[in-house]
Design a binder for these strands. Structure first.
Lengths: 223, 223, 223, 223
DNA sequence: GATGAATGAGCTTTCATTCAT
DNA sequence: CATGAATGAAAGCTCATTCAT
């Protein structure tokens, strides 16, 4: 069985002030959160590149100028959202114990965590993907975000390799392949609307499809 | 061993005229090709979204207005390039015989074809990925392009499944996962500059990493 | 004697906001009016077609972009001005009582109203005429604007016809002829600069010339 | 009864060469005529301002460059067409004898000549009207063209005035009013598509409507 | 003469960012 | 803090005119 959707999304945990680091008033906190939420909604519905600053403020019911009270530009909004996204993935991955226990159950768990993290953060996923393709700065950041997960995969593979249970001459390349699969598979089904003639997938089917690929690649060869 | 890079890239095979379907003169053919080549170079170096029409004409050593002699807008340029890209992949995939012979050799061949097609068409790969994330029209087109490859994977899986050699309850989901892996893996290593601390991969390492994942997912489980 | 020029021209009565229907601030109202006034001046001096957006903003002492805060394009400006123009003519025509009283006095009054309305709205007259010749949309609108006046003429003629006082087998055609005369006569003398060797006409001479034609066509035949 | 449509339209009578005055070869004559005819068709269907040079050459089945073999620009095309138009009107008006005979028959004849001249030259009428509103140069030319007709009206009125048969204190103003009526009435019904709810008029109805206005204004008052 | 590609000035429109109220 | 008008740099696209073939 696949673990059910864990927790909430949200623009929580970001009560820093404007550019200068000033603390915000209660009203300011509310405005900032409204803008972040509006941006999330739009990043998902219209895409990051197609979202204008004025769209965000309109969606948030604020004046255009208010945007600049809290953010220097659109990039900063995404940076903030991405930070929260990364934090959630990191936290959840840490909770997993990769070595002990039934390997397939572990892989399934891992895929479930990733799938649900992405589902909780669809706007962030969409925006990061898009931004990483238009802006070198975000390409770097996105590489950083995913590098942790890649590292865990690689370490796991290396461990099994040393134990003589599976041949993977290039653990990092394989880890990158598996990570790419997970990243883009989630993007395709959660953001882009699926493949031709199949617009969506149930959570379980999606998670199991990913898990199957990961498990067989890493463990099944050993059997 | 992995087959070596087969053939040429290029903006060949597109001698249609301007929007109206007029035939081009020899001079026109040259100019059009120069613009396509310039666009390719820029799509790769600066990205699709960051490439302006004037950049293309400058890079091609033409006047701004000349662009519109051949294309209605930037989308049309990409459409043309994408068409050539898809044609190459399709042609090469058709040449492969999926069923007979050593399965791993076949998978390796398949991955090699895909990798080299992408390597020959890095600008197209970059531009299509980017455009598909900003423009619904291109998202659809890109889905169409990749659906062939997905279909072939799924059919293969279904065949083995019926033969009782492997359990894959959702062939399309698995096919999508493998396809996503290949698409994004190629993008990451050929366009984006690899993962952190590892900017590039040799052709063979890359192809074998993909092949390992595909082969183990589809065939190895049967052994 | 002919009634003297009644009231003011102007871009009054148009405090709607930008495209979306937002209400304007006091500053916004001022800017919008400045742009409308600038457009009026230029429509008259250089003509509608020859007036560029940047001319309007320059004339108004605004930045180019400010234009689009208030209007979607030049057509919208003219539409606004035309609306005011039509409103004035309509209002004044309504005040006239066509049936009772001395017929010639009435006709004179009518022509005076039309002449002065056009004189108060020279830029609108110029622009509408020009736009109606380049843009089907404005041709339709202009037809609508003048149809009221035509209808009044026709009704009047029909009334006299029934009373057996004048033979006008095609009241609408006659009304159209009289209306055409008034429209283009006003255009020629107020906008185009008159006929050869006679650049202008006093108000009274102009009004009486029109009135003579109308009166004799409709009423004089009956005597 | 109204005289029937007299003669042919056409771009005849314009065998001058290119700008420099060189004589044209037979082939050249044909090309030039084809371009003029194409321009006429387009001036009527799309309007003068909306007709591009390339439209003309395309419509004529010629290459873009060929246009400049025969004309310096679009204005020159219109000038040529206008010349032919004016020549026809002048010729026909000369044939009329204004003084002798039944006044109403004469006026009817006059209006018929004007109506049919315009009908034979709809493209020219459309283009001249439009051009006169965008281009001071054509405004002047158009004033010249119509001044002859105005002069004849005025002379006629003055003649009757001296004879004490009608009071027209400002013959030129009245002549201008009648001329304006005829010009714009023809434009409205032959080019613009009539008034609201009445897209067209039979020749006789149109001619009689004009004649009625002219006759009553000039002669009827005397009775 | 005929052809159609090449050119670039000219105009429109968008939108991030600033700033006075 | 909130507001929304003001700004102008960037693009995109059009089209008259030139010119090499």
């Amino acid at each position: 069985m696949v673990r059910q959707d864990p927790s909430a999304p949200g623009a929580e945990g970001s009560e820093q002030g404007p550019a200068d680091g000033t603390l915000l008033t209660a009203r300011g906190v509310r405005s900032r959160a409204a803008l972040l939420e509006a941006a999330r909604r739009l990043f998902q519905s219209k895409g990051y590149a197609n979202t204008k600053i004025v769209d965000i403020t309109q969606e948030a019911g604020k004046a255009l100028g208010s945007f600049y009270t809290y953010f220097a530009n659109k990039e900063e909004v995404l940076e903030q959202l991405a930070k929260d996204f990364k934090a959630e993935i990191d936290r959840r991955l840490t909770e997993l114990d990769f070595v002990s226990g039934d390997p397939y159950a572990l892989v399934l768990e891992l895929c479930a965590v990733y799938w649900h993290s992405c589902k909780n953060h669809q706007p962030e996923l969409a925006a990061i993907f898009q931004a990483s393709m238009m802006d070198e700065q975000f390409a770097v950041r996105w590489r950083e975000i995913r590098s942790d997960a890649r590292g865990k995969f690689a370490a796991q593979i290396r461990g099994l390799d040393k134990a003589g249970r599976v041949a993977n001459p290039e653990p990092e390349a394989t880890a990158s392949a598996l990570g790419s699969m997970m990243d883009y598979f989630c993007y395709v089904w959660l953001i882009e609307g699926g493949e031709m003639n199949r617009p969506s997938l149930s959570d379980n089917v999606a998670i199991e499809a990913m898990a199957r690929v990961v498990y067989r690649t890493i463990f099944a060869a050993a059997e």
